[in-house]
């Protein structure tokens, strides 16, 4: 029987020798400085900005664009339309931040300088900040058009956004959520449906102060849930084989 060593020689001859010269040059350069630089939080976020898909930005920008064009063009209730969009804005944002899990990139990202946590943190901060910043922009535009209160408009957009985001972040920490990243869309759909039925059938108006307090509490809860989720990224217990 042919020994493996002999087979190796035969195969090497058959395959032809690899580019030894180039390989040697490369190997010799291994110990040299690889051009590595310190990755600050800002750089970490900036790096991820280039890797967030366009549709996430488009759906986020729609929050501000609908009040600009929607009311005039379609004559529909702009506030309701934007509020209906908010759960999907939140859901899509979290799916994007958790993208590594969907495409089996978590392990590779975890062993980089940024780490899996860092990547998730950077993406979430970036998407979250942009989406949150667009809420007051949208509210100002709508308040200007219908002479309502900016705070009331803000609150009505923040509530479905935060509720969806909080539920998604909690679900993402469960095994079911880890295995089904798209569950965030289902959560968004459920929040949308509940909001629709509340708008259609609810007669109780909690008043703007109560809603404002609820929105403020939800923002705090969302920040808390975000940090809780960041802590779990990369520590998921992978099933034994």
């Amino acid at each position: 029987m042919m020994k493996d060593k002999d087979l190796k020689i035969i195969l090497t001859e058959y395959a032809g020798k690899p580019g030894h010269l180039k390989k040697d040059t490369f190997i010799r350069s291994v110990t040299k400085d690889a051009g590595k630089e310190h990755v600050s939080t800002f750089k970490m976020i900036a790096v991820q900005a280039g890797y967030i898909r366009v549709y996430v930005w488009l759906i986020s920008i729609a929050v501000a664009c609908l009040p600009l064009f929607g009311a005039d063009m379609f004559r529909f209730a702009t506030l309701d339309a934007v509020a209906d969009l908010m759960p999907f804005v939140a859901g899509v944002g979290i799916i994007e931040a958790m993208r590594a899990r969907m495409y089996d990139m978590t392990e590779l990202e975890s062993v980089t300088l940024l780490s899996g946590k860092g990547v998730f943190y950077a993406r979430m901060i970036l998407i979250g900040v942009v989406q949150f910043a667009l809420i007051p922009v949208s509210a100002v535009l709508m308040a200007f058009a219908d002479t309502g209160s900016v705070i009331d408009h803000c609150v009505k957009l923040v509530l479905p956004y935060c509720i969806t985001a909080i539920i998604c972040l909690i679900v993402e920490r469960t095994r079911f959520g880890r295995e089904n990243v798209l569950v965030c869309l289902a959560v968004a759909g459920a929040v949308f449906a509940i909001r629709q039925s509340l708008v259609s059938f609810a007669r109780y108006d909690p008043g703007s102060l109560t809603l404002t307090i609820a929105a403020a509490v939800l923002i705090i809860v969302q920040i808390f849930e975000f940090y809780k989720t960041v802590r779990t990224v990369g520590t998921g217990e992978v099933e034994w084989n």
Partner: peptide
């Protein structure tokens, strides 16, 4: 440096994009 048993990639990535992404994550200018 680590090569896992199974790994994925973002569907829009070319081979070059894939490597550049890891350069960015590994702090290579």
């Amino acid at each position: 440096g680590y090569l896992p048993q199974d790994f994925g990639y973002y569907p829009e990535f070319t081979g070059m994009d894939f490597l550049k992404y890891f350069c960015a994550l590994k702090g290579i200018d």
